[in-house]
Each structure stands twice: as structure tokens, then as C-alpha cells.
Design a protein around this nucleic acid. Sequence first.
DNA 1: ACCTGAACACCGTTCAAGT
DNA 2: ACCTGAACACCGTTCAAGT
Lengths: 191, 191
Amino acid sequence: MTQQPFHHGNLRAVLLDQAERTLRQGSVDDLSLRELARQAGVSHGAPRSHFIDRQALLDAVAERGFERLTEEVGRAGAAHPTDLAERLRAAATAYVRFAVTDAALLELMFSAKGTGSAPGVQAAAGRFFSTFGALFDADLRAGRFRGTDPERTRLLFVAVLQGVAALIASHRVSAEQGAGLVDEAIELMLA
Amino acid sequence: MTQQPFHHGNLRAVLLDQAERTLRQGSVDDLSLRELARQAGVSHGAPRSHFIDRQALLDAVAERGFERLTEEVGRAGAAHPTDLAERLRAAATAYVRFAVTDAALLELMFSAKGTGSAPGVQAAAGRFFSTFGALFDADLRAGRFRGTDPERTRLLFVAVLQGVAALIASHRVSAEQGAGLVDEAIELMLA
DNA sequence: ACCTGAACACCGTTCAAGT
DNA sequence: ACCTGAACACCGTTCAAGT
């Protein structure tokens, strides 16, 4: 009875969970469809029913990553509705934490491969960027930033976070130094 | 006579050249040792004489990439010995150009895989960062930056460039927008 | 609709053998 | 010192067959 096929329509979710776990302790190269199937206790052909090929699985993982990042950054920002600098710091902290605990996932999310093709990933990335932009909106209009072009200001902050994440992922700076860099950036951006 | 073994000790360089070319029109996943050997007209086992495994080849490619990036950014900066903002802009332009024409290579260079292990890559990366830092030195001491900690100022600029490069590579901003972001960053950093 | 299992082409790696 | 070619284990992908 307990030996009946382990999954009933949730193999897809099981594979994605396992893929995320694998990414958390290795690189995207370590992600093998056959190994995932093995860990899920199904045959190596089974994933085919849910993902047309390996890239489709990676796309789904990236999409999920963007959704989680959006949620975590958005929540961190929402905790500070009045204080702008504090809100940016909180959002940045959430971003850096994500970059530290899920370095390989973030790399996958922002690789040309991940963002280049799949529309689902594109859409999820778009939602992330607009949620991120919303952190600035009211204060941008109020002119509390030194920057000139509002859109530019937003993108610049994303670039800083992304760059800091890359420096941390490549072990060039520590997570603490990364937080310091973010603080410095916020300081420079505020009028 | 012309059918004698094509390479005489320069197979290593041929493989690295071909690897770079492959990276320029694809991702690191498209890089296959066997395919490189095929293109070089040698047997699939031949690369083994020069690279112990695939990772060793990737390391060598990354190291070479850092050396070229160092050279190009350094040269761009050296063309403007007096004007600080112009020097940073020139160096940043060189960096962004590299990020555009060699996106996959840059990704390899900054991936945890590339920088994580091999000492040669670490050393080349270190030389790049110190060359990059040298662009700031005189003016940092002269206090021409708004930033507080000099080391932080340097790292922040690298982070901005790296982040802008990632945004361009993931097709989220154009190369022109990237240049605009860099200009904005320089403006914000200068006192 | 979902999963199995054989089949195929490709890859990285190893290694004895050649020059 | 450098390269060849067979061998091995692993992988992604396809597909007919089962339930």
C-alpha cells in the first residue's frame, strides 16, 4: 500500500523542491534530471511529463526564485512604510541574504540563459523589478534622492545590489562588507 | 608533410582561443572538450596533455579573461591621467564593452566556480582589482569623493559596474542605458 | 494523464600504447 | 613530451508501452 507510486500529480513540485535544495549546496552544473528523478524515487523518464527538457526545469526554478525574492524583498520593505532609508536598507538586507543563501539560484535567475528565453521567467523578473521599484515611488516624486532620472535611480540601486551579490558570491567580499557597501550606496543616493 | 601533427606545443593556445570564440557566441554550457578537440583537429584525449579536466580549461579561460580585462580597463584609464571623472568614465566604458562582447566569459570569470577554487584565477582577479583600484588612488587621498571609506568607494564602483554588466547581460537594460547608469554613479560619487 | 524502461547520441575521464 | 584510440560511467532526450 505504501509502495504505490509515491507521487500523485505532485512530482513536479517535488522535483522543483529538490532542485532548489541541490542548488543551495552546489552549482547549476550539479543539477541532473536523472539524479533528481532518482531522489524522487521515479524513473529517469518521469520528469518528462512535467518538464519538456532540462532547460524547462531550470526556467521553472528561476521563475520560482524570482517569486520568492519578490516576496521577501517586498515584505522587508513593507515593514518600514515611513522611513525611506530604513526601507531601502531592509529591502537590501533581504536581497543580500537571498544572494548568500541561494547564490547559485540567483546566478541562474540572472544568467542570460535564465532571463533570455522563457516568457514565464521574464514575467516573474518583471514583477520583481516593479515591486522593487515600488519601494522608491513616493519618495522619488518627493525628490528625496540626489539622482536626476527616477528610473535611473531605481536601476542604479538594483545594479548595486546585483553587483554586491556577485562580489559576495565570488568570495571577494564578506556578507558584512556587502552590507556596508549597500549602506554607503544608500547614503550617497539620498539628498 | 603538411599532414604532420598540426600542433607543436601550441595546442594549448589553440584550445583556449577556440574556447573564447565559442563563449562569445554561446554560454559556458556549449563548451565541450571533445568539440574543442574536434575543431582543433586532434583526438578527444589530446586536451588532457594540457588541461587535467574541463574545469582546468575553464579556469585558464577565466584567468586569461581577467588579464585582458585588466589590460583594457587599465589602458582606458591611463588615457586620462588628469581628469578623474573622465578616467572613471573611460574605464567603465571599457568594462561595459567587455561585458557586452564577452558576456559569457565575464559570467564565467565571476561565477563562484571560476573564482572559488583555482589559485591562478584568484591571482588574476586580484591583479584586476588592484589595477582598478589604482584608478582612484591619488584622488581618493585628495578627498575628491563623497564616500567615507576609500576601500568602500572602490568596491562600490566595482559593484556598480558588475551590476550594470549583469543587467545588460540579462537584457534588462541596453548598453546605452548601462552607460547612463555608470555616468549617474560617477556623478553621485564625486563630491 | 502520468510513469516505465529500452534505446541512442553525446560527454568527461582514464589509461595503455604509440611517436 | 605529446597525442591516439578504446573503454567506462554518466547524462539528456526520445518513444513505445504500460496503468
